[in-house]
């Protein structure tokens, strides 16, 4: 379990020079204070590749997420969102949309299994683009809806 892992603490980071490169074994524990100090001192943290973990990633197969877009209806909403998704190689499995009294509400079901952006990165891109157009865009893992609405 956790007993064999390296542990990186704040004290270990404090001993390094600024902007140093720190290579650690895959799966190492890096504490919150260590991460804060890493960010503050511009240290480059790299995890060694772990072939076992990568193989596991491959096996996961499909990964679905749900994106929602809410805001005032305007030209180019679908183009904006689908453009970002296409650029990250995210496939849109289903779209439904309604416009109620000028308010636009869209739900997209996405397949992230070939996505070239990781989840957080994609989420940020969508949120930022949404803000520029005055839209609220969320991206959530499918499991949330699966767990809440299906037994």
């Amino acid at each position: 379990m956790t007993s064999m892992k390296d542990v990186i603490t704040k004290a270990k980071i404090a001993a390094l020079p600024d902007h140093a490169e720190l290579r650690v074994a895959a799966g190492s524990v890096v504490t919150r204070s260590a991460r804060e100090l890493i960010a503050a001192r511009g240290i480059n943290l790299r995890f060694d590749d772990d072939p076992a973990a990568e193989a596991q990633e491959e096996e996961r197969g499909t990964e679905h997420a749900i994106a929602t877009v809410i805001g005032r209806d305007q030209v180019g909403i679908i183009a904006l969102v689908s453009g970002i998704l296409a650029a990250s190689h995210v496939n849109i499995l289903d779209i439904s949309q309604t416009v109620l009294q000028g308010f636009f509400a869209m739900v997209m079901i996405l397949d992230l299994s070939r996505s070239q952006s990781d989840f957080a990165e994609l989420q940020q891109k969508l949120e930022k683009a949404g803000e520029e157009m005055g839209l609220k865009i969320t991206l959530q893992h499918e499991d949330v809806f699966q767990y809440m609405h299906r037994v």
Partner: peptide, 18 residues
């Protein structure tokens, strides 16, 4: 489709959080 959530269900969840 592998999915069967209605739009209402999805917005219900979003509403709960937001």
């Amino acid at each position: 489709m592998p999915f069967s959530y209605t739009q209402d269900e999805i917005f219900e969840t979003i509403n709960m959080v937001e």
